[in-house]
Write a protein that binds this DNA or RNA. Structure first.
Lengths: 197, 197
DNA sequence: GGTTGTGCCTAATAGTCCTAGGAAGGGATG
DNA sequence: CATCCCTTCCTAGGACTATTAGGCACAACC
């Protein structure tokens, strides 16, 4: 009797592949087990539950996306970095729609596992680092980081869900949106007086 | 034997309520049937499948959200309208997290049903109408609409998923982001020469 | 009052998650 | 080399879910 060499990471990877190929809600214990040539009960030695598996897929996606972004912006600055950052984000969502969707589900996942995953935290750090070129001070910097993440996530998410009808190519809008974001970051509106928050 | 008076709409509503209370993936045929005091098989007379039900929930959410936005911006213009629009959007996502999440799933739903639902189309029209105050010309107007939808959706989506850590209240960031969007729309960057697209 | 159709039912199949307990491979230890 | 033990994977089974097929009873119309 051969051993399949399962680990939590291998199970997670199989689930992630399945999510990209068949859609996130086709990621079931049975389906992942079939893909690994194993009985479903065997997975429970490595993964606590289906919900746990989905959380791990989300964390994997966050790590992978962060890594891609880090590579993309390395050695770049200013608008160059901004565009590279955004394109890497969008490209990851295109390449891995299932994994990307997994990151959107409100996760009630093992906090200890989250703490060990570097992805989410590092992603924020990267964004802060990149936006430092725009000479924003706190709390504007935090707000700008959040705005940027919101816009990128919203665009890729809507695009994936078919939210942009056919009239105008999404790619054209994308380029213009990056222009707009860049402009906005360069001319970030000042706070009204008496608003230190 | 009492009749429950089921219709497709009543089933959809029960599913939507369940989605908000228990989370979208607790919306099952059995659970909806239980909530309606009915056997699960009975639902299939009104709804084609679970996936169909989820699609209907998504369409319901789109209609409701659009209605709220329409009420919010009625009689307003300029930044006033922008803020009202955005707040209505965000408030809907807060009030109905399950329904809102349903709109994010790529739906392979009956196209005929989609065509009959006024929500998605009307939402876009409303956005166009509101942004007309900013004197943008096509295709900038379309791009601005898409940017606006992306940012609002991204923000509410990230917020719902717990994406904004505790440091700074999300509400404060929200206000500043609306300022920023308004500023951006007033100073939309011009296209580079020789780019009629 | 009989007919017709609809609304909800029972019954059944297949697939799912997950638990409990058992067997067999692989490594450490005598 | 033999033994022990831990990990890995299995079999078996319970509870729940989605979906289909067919039946009965209620309501409306003639």
């Amino acid at each position: 009797m051969r051993r399949a060499g399962l680990t939590a990471d291998r199970v997670t990877l199989a689930g992630a592949e399945l999510a990209d190929e068949a859609g996130l809600d086709h990621v079931t214990m049975s389906a992942v087990a079939r893909r690994l040539g194993v009985k479903d009960a065997s997975l429970y030695a490595h993964v606590r539950s289906l919900e746990d598996l989905r959380g791990r897929i989300a964390l994997l996606a966050a790590d992978e996306k962060t890594l891609r972004i880090a590579e993309a912006i390395a050695g770049r600055a200013g608008k160059d970095a901004l565009v590279a950052y955004a394109n890497a984000w969008r490209q990851y969502a295109h390449d891995h729609p299932g994994r990307y969707l997994a990151t959107q589900i409100p996760m009630r996942i093992d906090p200890e596992l989250v703490a060990r995953a570097p992805g989410p935290r590092r992603a924020i750090e990267l964004t802060y680092g990149m936006l430092r070129a725009y000479a924003l001070e706190e709390p504007d910097l935090t707000d700008a980081v959040r705005l940027m993440r919101s816009t990128l996530h919203g665009f890729t998410s809507l695009e994936a869900a078919g939210g942009f009808a056919h009239e105008r190519p999404a790619q054209d809008t994308w380029i213009r949106c990056l222009d707009a974001l860049h402009t906005l970051l360069e001319h970030w509106p000042s706070r009204p007086e008496g608003d230190p928050a």
